[in-house]
Every structure is written in structure tokens, then in C-alpha cells.
Amino acid sequence: MHEASLAKNLLDQVRNIQREHPLSRVVDVEIELGPLSGVEPMLLSMAFERLVAEEGTGEIELIMREVALQAICEDCQRQCTISDFNFACLHCQSTKLEISQGDCVRLMSVNLTPIELCEGSVQCN
């Protein structure tokens, strides 16, 4: 179950981004994954939820968007969708394809909300 390891990588990236924006709290995180991402979405979601809970600094919603496997053909330069893991260009049948989407877990965006300052103290949930 390597989803735990991937969830740790994801949360590390999220916290790095949060650190660049002081006095903010993470509301949600949007990720993209596809047929060659090598993860089971539900297991990744559970692992992420568990890691966030262990930190004890509030919940983060994980928004997952599943995308098709797509590639750019090096010969005809056109984009095609790969079905059934058949790596041949749909337009010219070339097998020289560069995968452009669906082969990794990609952190798309992080939604931050400002931490409200009140009476000289920082509300830090």
C-alpha cells in the first residue's frame, strides 16, 4: 500500500506552499490522476485524510479529478487519448508518444484562507 507514501509527498508539497503564504490555512487541495498514476483513488484519499488528522491542525478537503491518459505524438505532433494502454498514435499509428496527462498524481491547486487576527492573538485552528 504505497498510497501512504504518496499521500506524504502530497501533504509535504501542500505545506511547502502554505509556508510561502504566512497566516493562512489550507481549505482544500485539488489533484489530478489518471490510468497510469499507479494509485487507487480511495486509498490515496484515506491515507491523506489520516495524515492530516495526525497533524491535528484542522481538516483539508481533497478534491480528486480523474483524467484520461493522453499523449503527444512525436511524429505528427498531435494529441491523442490512449485507450486500453495501446500506445500507438490514433492519427498516424506512430509509437513515439510522450505522455502529457494521466501518468502521475498532479497537485493542481491549493485553496488557502487567511487566518483571522483578533485582539492581538492569532486564531490558529
Partner: peptide, 18 residues
């Protein structure tokens, strides 16, 4: 009123490890 801010990342989560 302070507003939420969505930071666009578009980065492989394994990018650092890679």
C-alpha cells in the same frame, strides 16, 4: 473581509523525489 486565495500549482507530487 479577507478572501480565500487559490494557488495554482500543476506539479507532479513526486517531482522532488524524481
Amino acid at each position: 473581509q479577507l478572501e480565500n486565495k487559490r494557488i495554482i500549482v500543476r506539479r507532479d507530487i513526486m517531482a522532488d523525489a524524481k
